[in-house]
Every structure is written in structure tokens, then in C-alpha cells.
Amino acid sequence: MPEINRILIVTKSRYLGDTIVAVPAMRALATRYPQAHVTLLSNPAAGELLRGCPYVHEYLARPVTARRRVDLEMWRVLRRKGYDLAVLFNRSLSSAVLAFMARIPQRVGFDTEGRGFLLTRRVPYEPPKHEILHLLDVAEACGAPAQGTHMELWVTPEEREAIRGRMSKEGIDLNAPILLVQPGSNDAYVKRWRTEGFIWVAQQLQKEYGFQVVLLGANNEQDVAEQVASSFKDGALNMVGRTSLREALALLAEVDLLLGNDTGMMHAAVALGTPTVAIFAPHKFQRWAHNHDCHRALTVPLPEGARPTPELIHQHLYAVREEDVLHAAHEVLKVKPPRSGRGESEGHTPS
């Protein structure tokens, strides 16, 4: 590949999880091309999410629903910047058109949506395979071999100290273990497990480990959060809709276990090294679940050859048993037991 001094990376812009799982591939590119200035075109919140990331130098926001006029403006911006290489981690035709119209000479990405003729190097997208491995295939096609498959995020000691202080003011004993529950999600019908299941598992874990319960989620998930919080006679700290993105990341770094659905915050917890137990819809499991070290994911598979209709996905999501979720929590807490205290801590970057 010719000399590369400016790289444009494009990820999906709808969900933050898409950006987090791309970090291993970004690391591979940064290692292979240490002299290159790297720009990430992604979700408007990506710069805040990846604050402290050494693999990206500049962030450009692409709206979740990019209109043709917006892409025309972006095309002009990209052309002026003079990129040598466009790395398309998403699979849309529009992103390939954007890179082509910006006259970026090297354009590498998945051969999907009929966009192969716009790419200089095509990468097959062949499920079933974890999304991290798919994205590393694209990096490999750019001449950048994988530097591990682990995800990373960066939280400062000051951010962690601030969230500890906030929890303490709201009644959390920092010397006792903390269970973070995220019972909500977007696309609730096909991604949200049973509320009563979360309640039962959290109550069992509280009895066994002495967990204090904290709830996390978006503001539009208050209904399910209040239902969970009200089930604890000693109360639970409801922080749903009450944290910024950076505060949520600091909270994830401070707790002992995250119990939740398939969400961006679940991917963030994995990246921060916090033990996780996540319930997945069956059609998302192979591409997005994390089952290694102190992370467990559960699903009930669809019958072989079955069409993944919303109704069938919902049925199988709800079929995940509470006892299996509790067992998964026991497993991860054996790998990484709850902490007995929270003193001064460093920002976490997994190795």
C-alpha cells in the first residue's frame, strides 16, 4: 500500500456499541501506521466516548440519519482534508459513495450493499462471526494485523473520584460491593429481558454477596427502572437518566458487576474490565456477545432454519431462565470477586 499519512475511519453512527467494538481494529491501524493522522467519522458522541483514545486524533460527527444535503457538505469537508486511506467499518452504500466522491485514493471496506465497485479493496462479510473479528478483517486488508481482540475505553482518576463522591452522597457505602443493573434498552420488544427476571437475580445476588444496587439507563427507561428500584425494601440508587456519558463510563468502571441487556453500556463495561452478565436476543448473539474472562452472555437459540421474526425473537429472549443468569453471575464473580473498598484508582485501560 502507498505511503499513508492521513486515514479516515468510518463506523456506524446509530449505536455507541458499534464504535466500541471497532477499537481493536483502530488499534491495529494505529500500530501499523504510527505516523498517520487518524480521523473518525461516526456518532456525534464518539469523541466524548473515546476521550483519551491514543488511536484517533480528530472526530467528525455524522448524524444518525444523514440526509443527502448533509453528506454533500461532509464530502466537501473530506475532500479538503486530503485523506490517503478510507477505512469503512460500516456496510452502507452511502459511506462508500462519500469516500469515493471525496477522492480518497485507497478505500477499503466490506463488499456489501452493492458498493464493491466503489472500493479499491473489498472484504467479504461472512456471518456467523463476531463483529470485532469482522472489523479486524478490514484492518488486515489495510496491511494492519491485529494487536489483540480486546476492547478499550479510557476513564480518568478524576472522573472516577467524582462518581464515587456522588454515590457516597446518595447513600452508597463505597466499602461494600456494588451491583449495577441496566434493565432497559432501545428496541425493547426484541432486546429487553423480563423485568421480573432482573429483579429476582439482583435480589439473589444481594442476599449472597451483600450487593448494593444501582440502576443505569436512558431517561426513557424510567418506567422499568422504577419498577426494579421499588422491589428492594432497602431501596436502590436510581441513576437512570441522571448521568452524562462520561459519568456513566466512570460508574461502569467503579461497580463490581453489570447485569443487563445487550446495550452500548454493556460493551463499555467489557471494555473497562468490569464483570458483565448480559442477556441477548438470539439473532444478535454470535456477532455481539462477549463470553470470555469475567464476561458471560446468555440466550436461547432459535430453531435451525427458523426465520427471526420479532415475535420469535421476543419469545426466545424471554425464555432465558433466571437460574441460568444467576449461575453466570456466580461464574464471573469467581473470576473477578467483588472489591472490599474503593480508594484512589487509576483510569482503566485493559491489557
Score class of each variant (00 low, 15 high):
53 C>V: 02
12 K>Q: 14
3 E>N: 09
84 D>K: 11
286 Q>N: 13
318 Y>P: 03
141 A>S: 13
265 M>L: 15
22 A>S: 13
105 P>V: 03
101 M>W: 05
250 A>F: 01
115 R>C: 12
172 I>S: 06
255 V>R: 02
182 Q>K: 12
155 V>H: 06
248 A>R: 03
325 V>Y: 08
107 R>Q: 06
126 E>K: 13
310 P>E: 13
16 L>N: 06
94 S>G: 06
83 Y>D: 10
67 R>Q: 15
256 D>K: 12
217 G>P: 01
264 G>S: 12
121 R>V: 12
199 I>Y: 10
54 P>K: 10
47 G>L: 08
119 L>F: 00
169 K>R: 12
44 P>R: 05
268 A>Y: 13
90 N>H: 14
178 I>N: 04
258 L>W: 01
299 T>Q: 15
88 L>R: 02
334 K>D: 11
217 G>V: 09
111 D>I: 00
82 G>S: 11
233 K>F: 08
343 G>W: 00
118 L>P: 00
97 V>I: 12
115 R>E: 14
11 T>R: 07
16 L>H: 08
81 K>S: 05
45 A>P: 00
160 R>H: 01
78 L>K: 07
170 E>D: 08
132 I>H: 00
295 H>M: 10
135 L>E: 02
119 L>G: 05
262 D>N: 15
6 R>N: 12
6 R>P: 05
144 A>K: 14
250 A>T: 03
48 E>K: 15
276 T>F: 03
290 H>S: 08
192 R>I: 01
231 S>H: 10
177 P>K: 03
351 S>R: 09
146 A>F: 00
328 A>D: 05
265 M>V: 14
44 P>K: 07
110 F>I: 07
197 G>R: 01
300 V>F: 13
299 T>Y: 15
37 H>K: 04
165 G>N: 00
276 T>Y: 03
207 K>G: 04
52 G>L: 01
213 V>Q: 06
133 L>R: 14
69 R>P: 07
221 E>N: 14
268 A>F: 13
275 P>A: 06
94 S>D: 12
263 T>C: 11
311 E>S: 15
140 E>W: 04
13 S>W: 01
224 V>F: 02
215 L>C: 09
227 Q>E: 15
252 L>A: 01
138 V>A: 00
147 Q>E: 15
202 A>K: 10
6 R>T: 04
132 I>Y: 01
246 R>V: 07
29 L>Q: 06
188 A>H: 09
173 D>Y: 04
300 V>P: 12
293 D>L: 14
269 A>L: 03
34 P>H: 13
269 A>I: 06
67 R>T: 15
113 E>M: 07
263 T>P: 14
17 G>T: 03
316 H>T: 06
347 G>I: 08
219 N>Q: 15
178 I>H: 03
249 L>I: 04
83 Y>T: 10
325 V>I: 13
178 I>P: 00
25 A>M: 07
192 R>P: 02
245 L>W: 11
245 L>C: 09
42 S>L: 02
138 V>E: 01
185 S>R: 02
82 G>P: 07
204 Q>D: 04
